[in-house]
Design a protein around this nucleic acid. Structure first.
Lengths: 342, 342
DNA sequence: CTGAAAGCGCTTACAG
DNA sequence: CTGAAAGCGCTTACAG
């Protein structure tokens, strides 16, 4: 527990000034090879590494990127519990952050102030925001002078920021088209909340488009909404869907998690997938292959999404090149066992 | 983008010294109510909040707790991708950290130095280590003067630290006993790596115990090992298990994720769970209820585990009370559809 | 090429 | 009860 050496200790050991040590540390090109060698030697001997807190303070740069996760109203407790999506996303972020010498902080936030505070007090260099927050947050965010990457947002007030999203509309389209081609006509769309979620709306647009192309008249009778993205909510909406008798045979869903819950509900009612209902998920979580029936779904590469978001963010941080960019990732239909031809 | 106010600005506004502002901020009880009110007023007006970087530097306390995740050899990429366990654990940590005014950083680490650096450079106040690292790491850790909580470790060199674990032995016992009571005699044990994982060993001990109680002679023929905890590894070991013909009818597993993979393998070979094989998982991830058949498993409350670990850590940080504690959480058999009476 | 000095935004003995 | 001053560990103009 010999206390951590400081830059001063290194300086003394090397017989130079702290400034010089700092110069070699930061590769400021005005140190002679000779002194540089001496300094490096001293650093090695003392096993010195800089205190990032101090560096942050004087450089006004923290090398910290933050991931903010929304807290759903009634489960402020669980930040990203239950939602497999977050898992993969955060992994992606952490990976590129680490490789690029940044550290990753995560937080769930309740109210606006909490959020602003969090950013400011830690001098976060960049922020990734996952999920929807109230518009007022984004307005506040404009005044904060750090790069921000939003994930999966479509609102107008949102395009002042960097953005990583997938082609949601096409995803909805692919899902519906797949079912249509299999001969389904009465197809349900299960969203979380169309009014609140632009992502859901985009997917629904694509969904509608596919129906229309096939000469099917979309109807709001076929829209179902859940509260949150959990297996349980999926099961709940599944029951609802089963008892609504509109001759539904196909189900397009906004998330694999929901789809898995729905399948369970179907099975519990003594019906089968895909015999009685064909269902397609969204995301292609790793679990999809391993449930029975395995889940047909719209694949998006969430891990990659996290990597892209982090890369975009770090680029913005490092190059001051504050040009907003939005990256749209492709989407792909993965056919497995949960859908069948009618 | 008016720049962030500093303590100096507040002081000026309130007509006091920065020191005084600091006093009221830190609730050092020597400020008159009157000046305190003035200061608070100024803070309010300027919308001031302290810069944690600066606070950290001068207080030598960061209010940061770190979660270190192991990086499995061949997938250094994914920190906690794929493993649903991490998800819930981290959520628990984040929740209590936030409530107790700490922030949460996560990192995956490759080598030793990376780890030590990470702790030191950020002045992390406390560390939670998830999973196994080489012994040398723990030796290094002893020299670092911060509270550390280890999760699920049993090694000798490990009990210098705080520890949160579950009653693994009893878990293994419950699982095996359940199967034995259902009439199974040839029961496989699927671990990740008995030689490497003390947790696995504990569970196996309990497993053996239950067999012996029932007069069944344990045999190494019935032990199977995987590489990592992924669905894929589960499926792989499942195939292995199926082709090893020892008349196995029951399977005890060290993780739900593995169990799910195994079930898939079984179904793909045209066999059924529980008709042909009864299987019990470990963890009780939220997915367990929603797969088909739903998974009988040994429940541990992972979310709670994260909360306990964080609480323990923060307690240690705040009270200097550096007495090591190990918390053992209970474990419970949850019977669902994946096991049946023979 | 190198160093003395001021500064980053706070805290904390120490005086008064 | 309040403030001046030194200090936390670094960086960075500015001189020389």
């Amino acid at each position: 527990m010999n206390k951590k050496p400081t830059i001063r200790d290194v300086a003394k050991q090397a017989g130079v000034s702290p400034a010089t040590v700092s110069y070699v540390l930061n590769d400021v090109k005005k140190v002679s090879d000779k002194t540089k060698a001496v300094v490096l030697e001293a650093i090695e001997q003392l096993n010195y590494f800089p205190d990032f807190t101090a560096v942050s303070l004087s450089k006004k740069k923290s090398n910290l990127i933050g991931i903010m996760l929304p807290i759903i109203e009634d489960s402020p407790a669980s930040v990203f519990k239950n939602n497999l999506y977050y898992n993969e996303f955060v992994s992606g972020v952490e990976l590129v952050a680490r490789n690029r010498k940044f550290d990753t902080m995560i937080t769930g936030v309740g109210d606006l102030d909490e959020c602003k505070n969090w950013i400011m007090k830690r001098n976060i260099d960049g922020l990734i925001i996952l999920g929807m927050f109230p518009e007022s947050l984004y307005n506040e965010l404009k005044n904060i002078n750090i790069p921000i990457a939003l994930i999966d947002t479509y609102e107008d007030y949102t395009n002042l920021f960097n953005n990583v999203k997938v082609n949601d509309e096409y995803g909805g389209y692919l899902a519906a088209k797949h079912l249509v081609e299999l001969g389904h006509r009465n197809i349900a769309f299960v969203a979380t909340n169309l009014a609140m979620s632009p992502v859901d709306r985009k997917r629904y647009q694509g969904f509608e488009e596919a129906l229309k192309e096939a000469g099917i008249q979309p109807s709001s009778k076929f829209i179902f909404e859940t509260h949150d993205i959990t297996f349980e909510d999926g099961a709940k909406v599944g029951k609802e869907l089963l008892s609504s008798d509109h001759g539904i045979t196909g189900i397009v869903t906004v998330s694999d998690v929901l789809a898995i819950g729905i399948i369970k509900a179907i099975q519990q009612e003594g019906k089968q997938v895909p015999a009685d209902y064909s269902i397609v998920g969204f995301d292609d979580l790793s679990i999809c292959k391993y449930i029975t029936p395995s889940l047909t779904t719209i694949r998006q590469d969430i891990f990659e999404k996290g990597k892209l978001a982090a890369d975009q963010l770090v680029n913005a941080i490092e190059s001051l090149n504050s040009e907003q960019k939005t990256i749209e990732m492709p989407v792909e239909l993965i056919v497995r066992e949960s859908t069948r031809s009618l």
